[in-house]
């Protein structure tokens, strides 16, 4: 499989009032055609910023300060606004967290679908409407033709997120940036939406960058995972590998925090402390104050990436089995 999306050493800075903060730094990853990459981490780790940068939607005071973003072999982070706009919605689509606020409240669902379709595809109004109806049927909305005339407030949260999915898929994109697509929904609806997203992507061979802080979603839906911590990717590799044998102590902590129904654990594992904020960066490895295996050098030198099997890890002790066992 060739790389559909390639992000190289991406760096995003935020111009705060008195100084420049680093939101993400040295972020590199690839997504192949049809692959679902999960991006996981705590709030503020830089997951959403990474997705926003790929979409080219960074807004002041945030800006891309370094690195390259390639889509289908073409560099897109240097494209002009107009060229980027024709890419957005057509080749790279987005699904955002809150379906309640993602749709224009004053416009019918049909109109919003038709305007998106007609922006990118040379279809007549009737054909676009036809396509809009088909899409609503595909995302599992009952009575799709009637629903085209509905306003967003007339639908439930789950139905609205289905509409958002229909909007994302309406021009057959090759990549979808899904930023916490199920977080704002009821638990019972979350599984349905996730399932729908995964099925539609598999059917069409659409790749997904699935941003989430829900480890259950990662285990459920992704092929590979990138774990972000304090603006960097600390470990990236196949989901199956990371679930059972993660190399970075932070990833292991995360995996241990997934509740397991088969085991009768009273308490879930916690990682003590909290992640450093961009306005108070930590020297060396950003995780060292919370790390159980940290040594003196961890607080001074930033670890380089190490390739271990199919994974890439940023830890001085990656691959050191004696340490990784004793946690």
């Amino acid at each position: 499989m060739s790389a559909l999306l390639k992000v190289e050493s991406l760096r995003v800075e935020i111009a705060a009032r008195t100084r420049i903060l680093t939101a993400i730094d040295e972020v590199s990853f690839e997504i192949s055609e049809g692959e679902i990459l999960g991006v996981v981490g705590e709030s503020g780790a830089g997951k959403s910023v990474t997705g926003t940068a790929v979409l080219g939607l960074l807004e002041k005071p945030a800006y891309q300060a370094g690195g390259r973003i390639l889509f289908g072999g073409q560099r897109i982070d240097t494209l002009g606004e107009d060229a980027l706009r024709t890419l957005r919605g057509k080749e790279i689509a987005a699904v955002f967290q809150d379906p309640l606020t993602s749709l224009d409240p004053l416009m019918t669902i049909g109109d919003q679908l038709v305007e998106t379709i007609q922006t990118h595809l040379p279809l007549k109004a009737g054909e676009a409407l036809e396509r809009a109806g088909q899409l609503l049927a595909e995302v599992g909305i009952p009575a799709p033709r009637e629903r085209l005339r509905s306003y967003p407030h007339e639908l439930s949260g789950g139905m609205r997120q289905r509409v958002v999915l229909a909007l994302a898929f309406c021009c057959e994109p090759r990549l979808i940036i899904a930023d916490e697509p199920t977080t704002a929904l009821d638990v019972s609806i979350q599984a349905q939406i996730l399932d729908l997203l995964r099925r539609m992507c598999r059917e069409r061979g659409t790749a997904v960058m699935l941003v989430t802080h829900d480890m259950g979603v990662i285990a459920e839906a992704t092929d590979r995972v990138a774990v972000m911590y304090a603006g960097r990717i600390v470990e990236i590799g196949p989901t199956a590998t990371l679930l059972v044998g993660a190399s970075h102590p932070y990833t292991r902590g995360l995996m241990a925090s997934i509740p397991d129904m088969r085991r009768r654990e009273v308490e879930l594992t916690q990682i003590p402390g909290s992640m450093p904020r961009p306005d108070a960066p930590v020297s060396g490895c950003a995780f060292h104050p919370r790390c159980s295996i940290a040594e003196a050098r961890c607080s001074v030198e930033r670890p380089d990436d190490v390739v271990i099997g199919p994974s890439r890890v940023a830890c001085w002790f990656a691959g050191d089995t004696s340490r990784s066992v004793a946690r």
């Binding site: 979409l55 939607l57 890419l87 987005a94 606020t101 749709l103 224009d104 305007e115 922006t119």
Partner: peptide, 22 residues
């Protein structure tokens, strides 16, 4: 600043449509 404007941008709508229609 609203979410639906950000989403309209992500849908690749023309700036004119975003500013005036939405």
């Amino acid at each position: 600043r609203a979410d639906f404007i950000r989403f309209a941008r992500a849908r690749g709508l023309r700036p004119r449509a975003i500013e005036y229609r939405h």
